[in-house]
Design a protein around this nucleic acid. Sequence first.
RNA 1: GCCGGCGUAGCUUAGUCUGGUGGAGCACCCGGCUGUUAACCGGGCGGUCACCGGUUCAAAUCCGGUCGCCGGCGCCA
Length: 429
Amino acid sequence: MEFEKIRDALKKKEGEPAKIRGWIYRKRSSGKIVFVVIRDSTGIMQVIVEKSKVAKEDFKNADKALIESSVEVEGVIHEDERAPGGKEIHATKFNVIGFAKEFPITEYQSVEFLLDNRHLWLRSRRMTEVMKLKASMLKFIREWFDENEFWEVTPSVITMNAAEGGATVFSFDYFGQTAYLSQTAQMYLEALIFSLERVWSLTPSFRAEKSRTRRHLIEYWHLEAEEAWVRNEENMKLQEEMVSYVCQNIAKRCKEQLEYLGRKPEDLMVVEPPFKRIKYKDAIKILQDKGFDIQWGDDFGAPHEKALAEGEEKPIFVTNFPVESKAFYMKISPDGKTVECADMIAPEGYGEIIGGSEREDDIDSMIERLKKDGADIKNYEWYFDLRRYGSVPHSGFGLGLERFLCWIAKLEHIRDATPFPRLLRRAYP
RNA sequence: GCCGGCGUAGCUUAGUCUGGUGGAGCACCCGGCUGUUAACCGGGCGGUCACCGGUUCAAAUCCGGUCGCCGGCGCCA
C-alpha cells in the first residue's frame, strides 16, 4: 500500500485501511493509549496508538517521540466525533523516522523569537497557509498574463544603472567595477517590448532604505509589466483587470487559506473593474478637507494613503502626480506640471501596491531630470537608444508582490508575506 | 536619519516605582491514568537577572555607558 496524503485519508470511510506519513503536531498520552496528531502538507489527522494493538517497540516510540518527530503510520480509519476532522486512524504500525529534539517553539511566542527561529516557524499552520496563498497568487497572475498575450521574460538583477528616483541601492564589486542590485527591471522590460510587445517579469528587487515599517522589505518580489502601444489610461485598465482576476480567483479557489487567515472571500469577490480614479490635485483637496496639512508638491505618506482609501472596498488609482515627485522616465502630461502616472492604493490601509506610468519619449526631458537627481548620464545611453530606433508610446507598472499578498491575506506585517524576510536589522536565517 | 518601548530559566513572564536570600506557567525528565482536544494529577531538572562601570553595608531593582531587538515616522512597492 502506498502512502497517501492526509487530505485523502480524511475522505475515507470507517474500516478502510490507511497509510500516512508526516510530523507530530500534537501529542497526548494516557498510560496505555497515545493520541498523536500528525501533520503533512495537506492537513492534520489524529492517530490512536494503543498499547495492546501495536508492537511493543512501536508503542514505546509513539510514547516517547517528541513534537515534530517525523513518522510513518499504518492503520484503520475510524469515524469519531472526538477526533479533529471527525476521523482518525487506529494504528497497527507506528514507525518513527526521525526523533525530534525538544522543539524550541512552544505555546508562547514573541515576534523576536519567531524571527530567530524562522526556519522552524515556517512549519506553522499560519505560515503554511500564507505560502500556499502566495503560490496561488502567482499561479493566477501567470494565468492572467498568459491569457492577455504577455510574454514572461527574465531580466537581470545585476545592473549598472543605479538611480531610480533617489531610492537607495546596494552596490558591490563587479570585477573592479561598481555594480548594483536591481531595484526594478523596468528599463530592461522596455527594451524587450520592441520584439515581444507585451512582457512581464517576476524578479527580486532590493532597496537599501532604512525603512522600519510593516510595509517594507529590503528584498521583495517585484512583478513588473511593460506594454507597447499602450497609454496611461489603458495601462490602468490592464492593472485593474489583473488585480481583479487574482482577487476573484483567490476568493473562489483558496477559501480554506482565507478562512484560516481571517479574510472573508466576499471582501475579494467585490474587487472588479473599474477602480476609482482620483487626480493628484483632487486628492490633495480631499486630504486638506480631512484636516491634513498637505499641499501641492508634497508626496503622500502612509496616513495619507490610508485616508484616501478610507471606506473603499476596492483599490483606487491616484493619477497625475507632480513631475518633481516622480521618476525621470515618466511621461510629462500636456499641462507640463504632472506626469502620466497612476499609483494603485489598496483598501484598509494597506497602501500603495502598484506604481505605473506611461513612459517618456523625449530624451532631452529625461536627461534634464536625471541630471537633477545627480545620475551619471552615460549609463543610460543604451536606454536612450530605445527612443532612437522606432520608439512607440508605451506604459508599464510594478507591483510589490508581498504588499499585494499582505492585503489579500489580511496580514499585519509584510515580513509574514515571505518565508525568509530581509529586514533592516535582520538577514538571518 | 528621527521618536518611543523592551532585554529576568529553552519559551512566556512576575518582581524594578519604594534596594534586603529571584517566583510562576509552558517545554523537558520521572511516576500515575484506556478517549485526549495546546489533557489532567504528583515529583524533578533548569538563572552570570543582556554586557561594562558607578553609588551603597547590600543592586534584577538606583545612576552612566555599550550592545541587541521590537514598534512608529520619513523614504518607497
